[in-house]
């Protein structure tokens, strides 16, 4: 089951870190970083069913 209820231990910090991680990168570099980040997080989650839910939700955020 994909967790969609609040689950971030430090939401503001994590969001700021995400933005800071992209600092100084060109748009193409940022896209590549995002791709690597998604892959790393995908592996952390692991479960194919959870990933499928997350991808559906990202494609259509109203589909909860």
């Amino acid at each position: 089951m994909l967790i969609t209820t609040p689950n971030l231990t430090r939401p503001d910090e994590s969001y700021a870190r995400l933005i800071a991680t992209h600092e100084g990168l060109s748009e193409a570099e940022s896209h590549a970083l995002n791709a690597r980040l998604i892959l790393i997080l995908m592996n952390h989650i692991g479960d194919e069913a959870v990933l499928a839910e997350a991808m559906l939700l990202a494609r259509d955020p109203s589909a909860v």
Binding site: H31, A32, A35, L39, N43
Partner: peptide
């Protein structure tokens, strides 16, 4: 292509990416 190359960029050091 971007995702493909992201996988390749990780595969050198991260064994999980090799599975992809």
């Amino acid at each position: 292509k971007m995702f493909r190359n992201a996988v390749l960029a990780l595969a050198g050091s991260l064994p999980f990416a090799r599975t992809v």
